[in-house]
Design a protein around this nucleic acid. Sequence first.
DNA 1: GTGAAAGCGCTAACAT
DNA 2: ATGTTAGCGCTTTCAC
Lengths: 344, 344
Amino acid sequence: MKKQECTIYDLARELNISPATVSRALQNSPVVSKKTKNRIIMLAREMGYRSNTIASNLRRKKTNTLGVIVPRLNSHFMSSAISGTEKIANLVGYNLIITQSQEKASKEAFNVNTLFNNRVDGLVVSLAGDTTDFSAFQVLLDREIPVIFFDRITEELACPGFIIDNHQAGQLITTHLIEQGCKNVVHITGDLNRNVYADRCEGYKKALTLQGLPVREEFIMATNLSIEAGVEAANRIKSLSPAPDGIFVANDACAISCMNTLKKNGFRIPEDIAVAGFNNDPYAALVEPALTTIDYPGEEMGEMVIKSLIEHLENKQDLRSTNRIILRSSLIIRESTLRTEKSQ
Amino acid sequence: MKKQECTIYDLARELNISPATVSRALQNSPVVSKKTKNRIIMLAREMGYRSNTIASNLRRKKTNTLGVIVPRLNSHFMSSAISGTEKIANLVGYNLIITQSQEKASKEAFNVNTLFNNRVDGLVVSLAGDTTDFSAFQVLLDREIPVIFFDRITEELACPGFIIDNHQAGQLITTHLIEQGCKNVVHITGDLNRNVYADRCEGYKKALTLQGLPVREEFIMATNLSIEAGVEAANRIKSLSPAPDGIFVANDACAISCMNTLKKNGFRIPEDIAVAGFNNDPYAALVEPALTTIDYPGEEMGEMVIKSLIEHLENKQDLRSTNRIILRSSLIIRESTLRTEKSQ
DNA sequence: GTGAAAGCGCTAACAT
DNA sequence: ATGTTAGCGCTTTCAC
């Protein structure tokens, strides 16, 4: 048969004490005597008492729950970042409600709302591809519920953001391609509304310009960076003129798929075309040729962002003072771009 | 300055009506007149009213929230499954709290507890690798909170499970290897406590036996199926005798890494050793040679499991009657095992 | 060290 | 169609 809910009142009645004392004992408050505390805890175990977090949350006006909104969970970077947030949150007694926007601003706004209605204490967000209206977030900020962004951030809200220097990374990897002898470098990017792609693209342009190479708009392809997009991009690249000899793709999945399609079309990588990605997905090292990419500290970013949010909530740290936190990233050079000893 | 919480009492006072009417109006109850409903909704918007889900949950003794526990979020299968659950849950007005056990039974039990304390209406679980004690789940079952498993299920609890026929799939893929001329097939598997790995392994053995081949215990390697494990396994395989000519790995990540290491050691795939994986990760089609694998309906499984849970909660369907739901899976043959026209 | 009492914000009988 | 009222289970101030 079904077990009844057992409340602190049941425990109190059983022991002939007040619910207040039971509540205090279960929170391990120092004012309760060791003896009664023990009696209460024993009985609670015996009767299968389980604290009702909802009631506690309502009363305390604090939920110890943080909301997380990410575009998708299915990239290596995102699942690492989530893993990092969860690890820290668990450690210090916070719960996480993890949601996906599926790259859609509408779902993102919907999620912000339900998370707010569930009275999360704070929110961690990596933006959907097409978000341009940030008013949903403003609702939280108006009530001083902290919102922190990571990776895909915005300048439109006065919120802290944890990022890498995408501009520098884009410039670094493009420069590397040029140093390997590439003169006609294509860039495959994502939604340029998002800082991550816009900045990488700027870095790409900067590198070309600094090396005295022309920036050709038709060499910059905005896609959704999916595996399918990689196939399409490869097909477009075949007919570009002058013939591209290098490609910088803004993520690894698309880069690998693009490289694969080019190989099937008889291109030699890196001799005919060098290919570089971004993110250092585990598979990047396993494909042939192994993919040059930017290593990107997902887990660490997740840890830092949640730590910072919690410290703010517990008044240990002010958020205004640290508005952009830039984590290190690094270029990982592999065979897909190494042409100096092979050709040229 | 900080916006004040606005409650239904504030709205009621402002309009000189009772909180009950406000509550009814906001739930769009048909008994409230269109006129007052409108006035209430207008004022709510104007005053920035936001319903407090916590208070509502406490009162209704229902949260419209479901808990999800998976080992990790970072595999293609799991992120697809999660994506499926979220899609359906959203559609019908349920929230999801997604958590990871990180493959650890202790964290899994901890998560079950916090989810229960948050009074989730139901729970969806794919088990951690080493769970053998299921008492944490029993707490929920004792209170008639439904728990449904998917993929990694257990026979120890009377709960429905959504799975594929792992035994059949394992047998199918092993038979395929044998048909391609493999006589000494290695099997790299995960924790044999879990049905998914135990069943695939049984299928492997069955296939060998049916084809009159010996089952060699030293050809069965239990690992954590990580990329690192793939490297190690490849190194062990080099020194096995008789020399293996086929490998069936219980997931794609490990298979690809193993294949990669073998290639680096001069083995030709599939001529010297054929390699097959499991899951049909997107990358399986992109590596060289493309990986033979079992296609596995992650998103669909996620959709079905959550749909079934919700229908049970809403009394539209009884769960006892449908104890094991088997979804279809299929063998995808690619170059990594195709040797008939190449060698032998 | 313990108890009494009020209330978090909402909902749902029951009454009108 | 609307109002009254009594909680949901917990925490916390204020007493003692």
